[in-house]
Computed example of a mutant assay.
Amino acid sequence: MRRYTVAAAQMDSGPEKEINLIHMETMIEEAGKRGASLVVFPETSTLLPSSGIEKEAGAEPVPGPSTDRLSKAAREAGIWVHSGSLLERIEGNEKCYNTSVLISPEGEVTAKYRKIHLFDVNVHDGPSVRESASYASGNEIVIAETPLGNIGMSICYDLRFPELYRILALRGAQVLVVPACFTSDTGKEHWDPLLRARAIENLCYVVAPGQVGSKPRYRAHGKSMVVDPWGTVTACRASGEGLVLAEVDLDRLESLRHSVPCLQNRRPDTYDWR
């Protein structure tokens, strides 16, 4: 499919997994009715715990109960579903993975990505967060080959590491998904330019759904958006929960890559990373 509609789902997820999942099932149904071929949810979509106890109790295998429900909703709506991210249990380990899955319209889990870059920061005039205390980092770069194009997977803080997205683009990614729970402290200055930069420098579509609302230690930025390969924000939801829809046109993407062949004009023979 060379041209289709994508939906980015903005959520205010909390510690009640059942409430979050019911909301996601409703949004999947709505996205299908509005003509979307793919709906992408934000980071920690199924569960945003307020304590370590809630995190440990809410982590589950992937695939598991939550992905089973999302698979059923995908089948009923007849669309692709990107889970955002879930807490994936690691047997024998108190830590868990922050994990995304991509589900086909037939309800099959076709790709799984574990967040590579963990958010260990002290934000100026903002929160102090150390994800590595609770999460294990993934180590695999993932591209899902689908009828909707090649989808490069990432999660939130990954956005600050352009190396990941350049590798995704060089391996054939056409659509980059960035489910996030950006803090308002960093998001108000960095969210827009980072997303547009990843789209422009890699000539890819970027689909970036975010969490919104007050969380246990910070306020989430929201501003879910879709950015085209020229860096134009084609759809955006500034606040509140809901879907934002935009068109993905892979023929236009290929035309822009032909006009501005920066991926072909690279000089890896001159790059020295040492």
Rank of each mutant, 00 (worst) to 15 (best):
R2H: 13
R3N: 03
R3C: 05
Y4E: 02
T5S: 05
A7K: 05
A8F: 05
A9L: 03
Q10D: 01
M11I: 13
M11A: 06
D12W: 12
D12H: 13
G14Q: 06
P15L: 01
E16N: 09
E16A: 05
K17D: 00
N20C: 09
N20F: 02
T26G: 10
T26H: 02
E29Q: 15
E30H: 12
A31F: 11
G32T: 01
S37M: 09
L38M: 12
V39F: 08
F41N: 07
P42Q: 13
T46C: 11
T46M: 06
L47F: 10
S51C: 06
E60C: 07
E60L: 14
P63N: 04
P63F: 05
G64C: 11
T67I: 00
A73W: 04
A74Y: 04
R75W: 00
R75Q: 12
R75A: 05
A77G: 06
H82I: 01
G84S: 08
S85D: 00
S85I: 13
N98L: 09
N98W: 05
T99H: 01
S100Y: 01
P105W: 10
E106V: 01
E108G: 07
K112H: 01
R114M: 06
H117Y: 09
L118G: 06
V123H: 09
G126E: 10
P127K: 05
P127A: 11
V129W: 05
G138T: 11
G138D: 04
G138A: 07
N139C: 12
I141T: 15
I143S: 04
I143N: 15
E145S: 08
E145L: 00
L148N: 10
G152M: 06
G152Q: 09
P162F: 09
P162C: 02
E163Y: 11
L164M: 12
I167C: 10
L168H: 05
L170I: 11
L170M: 10
R171N: 15
V178H: 11
F182A: 04
F182V: 14
S184A: 14
G187C: 05
G187W: 09
D192K: 08
L194I: 00
R198H: 01
R198V: 13
N202I: 03
N202K: 04
L203S: 12
C204F: 01
S214M: 15
P216T: 07
R217N: 10
Y218Q: 07
Y218D: 12
A220G: 07
H221P: 06
K223Q: 14
K223E: 15
M225F: 01
V227K: 13
V227N: 09
D228C: 04
W230P: 00
W230F: 02
T234H: 03
A235Y: 12
A235C: 13
G240D: 05
E241L: 04
G242D: 04
L243C: 10
V244P: 08
V244C: 11
L245R: 07
L245N: 09
A246I: 14
D249I: 03
R252N: 02
S255Q: 08
L256E: 15
H258L: 08
H258E: 14
S259W: 07
V260N: 07
P261A: 02
L263N: 08
L263K: 02
R266S: 11
P268Y: 08
T270N: 07
D272Q: 11
W273A: 13
W273Q: 05
W273C: 01
R274T: 09
R274F: 08
